[in-house]
């Protein structure tokens, strides 16, 4: 054919590759089965567990989840690609979310974003060279009264100044929450 077409007939993963989900992870996913009427309903918990384990949901992992839940792999791809929370490509261990909505923008959010970019030397949707950080912008972090704000994984930073950014990012424990996190979706051994 004379034009370019993406070939979807060829698998993107190695069929001989060993499974990425260990038996312990599978067992953790299976433990959600009794909660719902169908196995399909366990898809979101399963994706959370796998994303926590690998940092992203690979095609190989999608296929294995599909086999585990007895659904078609395309249904897993559908959900993974729908939610921006799930990534289907490798990314940094910590996700830095900077708000780009109105309140934060007015209060200097743009400068904060620039500071993050300069400090980590990455662009939006980029991963820092040490593999630690992944940068995205979000529409609203629902903290308008404390604008501008940014979030590292599940921890939110309020009234961030551009000058604070390098200090926050340099902190090893910047993603740790002050209260204990629910371990419901933690993969075993974490």
């Amino acid at each position: 054919m004379s034009w370019k077409a993406y070939d979807r007939n060829q698998p993107v993963m190695d069929p001989q590759a060993p499974p990425v989900l260990t038996e312990a992870v599978r067992e953790k996913i299976r433990s959600f089965f009794p909660r719902y009427e169908t196995k399909r309903a366990v898809l979101l918990p399963a994706l959370h567990i796998v994303q926590e384990l690998l940092g992203y949901v690979s095609y190989q992992a999608m296929k294995e989840i599909a086999d585990l839940l007895e659904i078609h792999a395309s249904d897993v791809l559908d959900v993974v690609s729908f939610y921006t929370h799930f990534a289907n490509h490798p990314k940094g261990r910590k996700t830095v979310m900077v708000c780009r909505s109105l309140s934060c923008e007015l209060m200097g959010g743009k400068a904060v974003l620039e500071a993050v970019k300069n400090t980590l030397q990455i662009q939006e949707h980029g991963t820092s060279t040490d593999g630690q950080y992944f940068l995205v912008t979000e529409e609203c972090l629902a903290e308008c009264d404390h604008a501008p704000c940014l979030k590292i994984n599940e921890r939110t930073y309020h009234q961030v100044k551009a000058t604070d950014v390098s200090r926050i990012l340099a902190d090893e424990k910047n993603a740790e929450l002050s209260i204990a996190r629910s371990s419901l979706f933690d993969p075993p051994g974490h």
């Binding site: 979807r8 007939n9 698998p11 993107v12 095609y59 078609h72 792999a73 559908d78 690609s81 729908f82």
Partner: peptide
């Protein structure tokens, strides 16, 4: 299946499962 969302939504198959 439908991949992505909103104005970037596309019809697609799982690669390798045509």
């Amino acid at each position: 299946t439908v991949v992505n969302r909103g104005n970037r939504a596309e019809i697609d198959v799982f690669p390798g499962l045509p």
